[in-house]
Amino acid sequence: MFELIANQYNYWICILLMMAGLYIVIDHTNLLKKLIGLNIFQTSVFILFISMGKVDGGTAPILEEGYNVFSNPLPHVLILTAIVVSIATTAVGLALVVNINKRFQSIDEQELEQIELEEE
């Protein structure tokens, strides 16, 4: 049982981070903290991908005498793209939060709901 956990510790870390991130997104009312939670959630997925590409004893995939085992580079490349996407998302999200703060004078979800209800 312990081995199962220990040998696949990367997955457990992923799951832990994923749950933590999702929990923050769901539970926190502060829009900024939600974004942070979203980032943690996304990062956990990146780690999932990267650890997937790991091959025991493998090196960087450069052809050189004496090295036969390489790590899979493809997940890394994919994740580079995903990181860019994630940054863009965060940037848009932050911009939205700034604007929300400007026009509502609040970034608390419950307060915002209150304001919107009063407007109706």
Partner: peptide, 15 residues
């Protein structure tokens, strides 16, 4: 309200 609508979409869409 478009801002909050967009924010909500962003969170859900990203998930």
């Amino acid at each position: 309200k478009a801002l909050t609508a967009s924010y909500e979409y962003l969170i859900m869409g990203t998930i």
